[in-house]
Each structure stands twice: as structure tokens, then as C-alpha cells.
Design a protein around this nucleic acid. Structure first.
Lengths: 147, 147
DNA sequence: TATTGTTATACTCTATAACTATA
DNA sequence: TATAGTTATAGAGTATAACAATA
């Protein structure tokens, strides 16, 4: 028998799958991969940063960032510039093409959000968001306890 | 400015991230990878099937399934048996170890669902699920229209 | 002819370990 | 000594194309 709780979790996972599929469309249109898009997104949030900072933000090894940045330099989305105060480090900065891509990521994200939630009455949306916040907080507590 | 809609979408994505992190725990405990777990999960839903069927269910190439099944045979989770009616095909069947893993996947899934949603009042949960269904349906329509 | 699965080849993401240059 | 990044090496997932066996 399927409980109401498992049905709810399954629906959350299903929506995640759909959102991932939507992201795949952006990937094929832009010629970028998911990991490179993720890096660009983070770079858009932070502004120019070192590779170390990207490795922390993406929760990935420094070596991995080297590869992703190599690819984004080759495709013209970012530059590796000398760090002004630390000659060991490099500043990763979006090029105009990179900035344009980040802008499209943001507008697509906003557009998707509006399309999905625009028709939901605000009281219902408030309950939805409050529930999400509750279960996310519960989850964080569970993972904390399991650690 | 962040709209209510983007805030809602961001929270959904955040929860997805947390669920993925939880899955990573199962992976390290079982020694399996995400893709192999996904295959086992599907195999549990379908019962013994051909690799073609798995490729369709996982939305992945037949070549990819060959590699995943190779690994799961090596780790003792599934067997490749001759198909009774079609000598081209192989039936992939979980071993006792595979069945036990599928069972743990299911019980962990159920337990997680209960932990997350168990404390949510049923009226609130109903609104939550109804909202999820609405936006999922909206999404399906959008993707259909874009195709 | 069409389908099932495999071999061949290649790209991407990912990690750890050893190393260089700098702090 | 510690940190930033790269080179070396390796494993896993993924794809396409060519091929063999069978339908």
C-alpha cells in the first residue's frame, strides 16, 4: 500500500525529474554541459572568483574545476586572469558571451517559475512554500543527526 | 527582486538537492553507484526484463545498459539469463542480494517519506500535493507545446 | 529487413596523489 | 609550512557507429 507520505515524496521527485529534463533543453541549445552551466550560474552569483572558491561552491575537487574552466575558456565563456594580490591564484571572470549565457539562465529560470506558479492562488502558494520549508528543515535536522 | 514564484521554484530545487545528498549516503553504504541503483529500482518495479526494456525505462542507450548490467553481474546483484522465447535477448533478473538491495531501497524510501511528511497535518499535505500536481501538469503541457 | 546486444571508440565528470609556484 | 592550481592516472556514465546473431 502506498501511503500519503510516499505519494507526496514521489511527486516531488517527479517534478525534479521534469525540471532536469527542462535543463537538458538549455544544455543542447547552448552547447554547454550541466556541470559547466552550474559553474557559470555560481560565477554569476559570486562575481569573479578563484578556482578554490568555485571548488567550494560546487562542492567538487579543485582538479575538477581546472577541467571545467579549461572547457569554458575554450568555448569563450570565461577568462583566467592573474589574481591582483596572490600570484598563486587565478581570477575566473565571465566574458561577454559568458555574461549573456548567465543572463539567459536567469531569465529562463524566472520564466519557468512564472509559468509554473503564476496561476496558483497566492494563499495556496503560501501554504505550498510553507510546507516545503517545513520538510526541508526536517530534512536538514535528519541529516545533521545522521552525521 | 525575487518573485514569489522564483522563491517557490528555488525551494523545490533545494529540496531536490537534499534528496540527492541522501541518496549518496545509500550509495556509499551499498557500494553501488546512482545509475546502478536506478537500474535496480526499475528492475524491482518491472520484474525480470530484457536490456532493451531497461534502456527504455532508464532513457539511456542499450550500450550503456550493457555496462551497467556487467557491473551488477560482477557485484552479484543481477543475473543475465537466456530469454525463453527470443534467443537474441537476455533476461535480467535480480539475485537474492539484488532483491535484498531493492527491498532496502524501498524501505529507506518509505522511511524518508514518513519522516519528512509524517508531521504535516493532512489538510496541509493535501494542499501541498494538489499544488504539486497542478504545476507538474502545467509543466507537462509546456514541454508538450515546446516539442 | 528489423531487432538485441556487444565491440570499438570517444567525451565528460569525477576523484586522489604528487608536484610546482607562491604565500 | 600551508595554499592555489596543474599534471598524472584512473573509474564511471554516457553516446554513436559498426557488427553479429537472431527474428
Amino acid at each position: 500500500m502506498t501511503t500519503a507520505a510516499t505519494a507526496a515524496l514521489d511527486k516531488v521527485l517527479h517534478l525534479s525529474t521534469l525540471v532536469s529534463a527542462d535543463m537538458a533543453r538549455f544544455q543542447s541549445e547552448s552547447g554547454l554541459t550541466g556541470s559547466r552551466i552550474h559553474l557559470l550560474w555560481m560565477l554569476g552569483l559570486s562575481g569573479p572568483v578563484t578556482q578554490q572558491a568555485l571548488a567550494s561552491a560546487l562542492e567538487v575537487s579543485p582538479r575538477n574545476v581546472t577541467g571545467l574552466v579549461d572547457a569554458l575558456v575554450a568555448s569563450g565563456h570565461v577568462t583566467r586572469e592573474p589574481h591582483p594580490h596572490d600570484r598563486r591564484a587565478r581570477l575566473i571572470t565571465p566574458t561577454p558571451l559568458g555574461q549573456q549565457t548567465i543572463g539567459r539562465l536567469r531569465s529562463d529560470h524566472q520564466e519557468l517559475a512564472d509559468q509554473l506558479f503564476g496561476a496558483v492562488p497566492s494563499a495556496q502558494l503560501a501554504t505550498f512554500v510553507a510546507t516545503l520549508e517545513e520538510i526541508t528543515a526536517t530534512f536538514a535536522r535528519l541529516m545533521e543527526a545522521a552525521r
